[in-house]
């Protein structure tokens, strides 16, 4: 199953990057969403998908799923939630100020002279 997951994750990353390279800001943010999904699944996969029961202590169970990656993912999920929320509001404010969501129109001048 891990091998399948590796490909799924790769696919998610590919889609995420493709979206990030587009010019619509909303798509870019959606891309970051896919990116974090990919990353979270990857952490889980890297910990190993074996383990027959959830990491909640129960009598008689010895084969727990690796709890450490799960804890890491939880932290990562929360953080990416914060970032996504922030990013969304930023996009929303940019629409208001710059009146576009096209990245190509947000070039900004590198020159001042």
């Amino acid at each position: 199953m891990e091998i399948v997951m590796c490909f799924v994750i790769g696919f998610l990353f590919m889609a995420a990057v493709y979206l990030m390279l587009s010019k619509s800001l909303l798509r870019i943010i959606i891309g970051t969403g896919l990116l974090s999904h990919g990353a979270h699944l990857l952490i889980l996969t890297m910990g190993g998908l074996g383990g027959s029961s959830p990491p909640v202590v129960a009598p008689g169970v010895t084969d727990y799923a690796d709890p450490l990656p799960q804890a890491l993912i939880l932290t990562a999920i929360v953080i990416s939630f914060g970032v996504t929320a922030f990013f969304l509001v930023l996009a929303y404010r940019s629409y208001q100020e710059l009146e576009t969501d096209n990245m190509n129109l947000m070039r900004g001048t590198e020159d001042h002279d």
Partner: peptide, 10 residues
């Protein structure tokens, strides 16, 4: 950050 996380995972 995403790269950081996956690198740590690796």
């Amino acid at each position: 950050s995403a790269l950081f996380v996956i690198t740590v995972a690796y």
